[in-house]
Amino acid sequence: MLEGLIVAIVVLAASAYAAWALMPVSARLQLARTVAGIAGGPAAPPWLGRLAARLERAALRRGGGQCAACDARPAAPDRRPPAGG
């Protein structure tokens, strides 16, 4: 029973993370704002507000339309003083 519960939690968390990471930034922001709207309700618990704020920050971070492997340094043809100068 406990084993099944642990596995269910891990699978749900992985699914949520994968969906979030692959979502475009605009969709993530939309989702974060929806949560923020719910958190703004009178009966909403305080942790929901904190979660909404975290989601909004995370939505703007790398992911979605970007790619975690994509900070590879593009070849720099010149490393002399700044261009234009």
């Binding site: 891990v10 699978v11 992985a14 699914s15 993370y17 994968a18 990471a21 975690a68």
Partner: peptide
């Protein structure tokens, strides 16, 4: 970058695929 990628999105997708 590579290890983070394996430990995050690849790991998450593998868990979903296992399910």
């Amino acid at each position: 970058v590579f290890v983070r990628r394996v430990g995050t999105i690849i790991l998450a997708l593998m868990i979903v695929l296992w399910f």
